[in-house]
């Protein structure tokens, strides 16, 4: 089970702009005191997306950033009320945003591994995007 101090959930408002969605989530991480620079963090996230889509399953995106702006390994999960039009004609329902101060911190984190193992399971990812409420997603991932 992921420590609640590491895994957070939020609902996302429909938006036409992915940048806007990332911005919203970065601000939340800042509020949670997990990053110390929203703009710099957001820059990392966007740069990563530009290198290649982080779509890990149908309708599930996993944007991630590694850098000293991150204070602690954190996963922020955001759910749209309905599937959102995203880049390249794809649609997104769930965003699993990953923030880590350095790669080794992420790679050796057992709780993060447990979460990724769940996300590697197609049955789980199918269920996740079929949920209506954040609380239901939370149940599936905790």
């Amino acid at each position: 089970m992921i420590d609640s101090q590491e895994l957070f959930f939020m609902s996302l408002s429909p938006s036409d702009s992915s940048l806007e969605v990332f911005q919203t989530m970065a601000q939340r991480l800042s509020q949670l005191n997990r990053i110390n620079n929203v703009a710099a963090f957001n820059d990392l996230i966007v740069k990563r997306e530009q290198q290649g889509m982080t779509m890990i399953a149908p309708q599930i995106l996993m944007p991630h950033a590694v850098g000293s702006v991150v204070l602690k390994n954190t996963v922020l999960v955001g759910l749209f009320p309905t599937a959102q039009h995203w880049n390249q004609g794809l649609s997104v329902r769930l965003i699993v945003m990953l923030a880590t101060p350095n790669a080794s911190a992420a790679q050796t984190d057992p709780q993060l591994m447990a979460l990724l193992t769940k996300l590697a399971d197609e049955q789980v990812t199918e269920k996740l995007v079929a949920q209506k409420k954040v609380s239901q997603v939370q149940l599936l991932l905790q």
């Binding site: 990563r48 290198q51 290649g52 982080t54 890990i56 996993m62 944007p63 991630h64 950033a65 590694v66 990953l98 880590t100 790669a103 992420a106 790679q107 993060l112 591994m113 990724l116 996300l119 590697a120």
Partner: peptide, 9 residues
């Protein structure tokens, strides 16, 4: 790109 996240998955 980062060795974190998607690659871990």
């Amino acid at each position: 790109a980062s060795g974190v996240g998607t690659s871990q998955l």
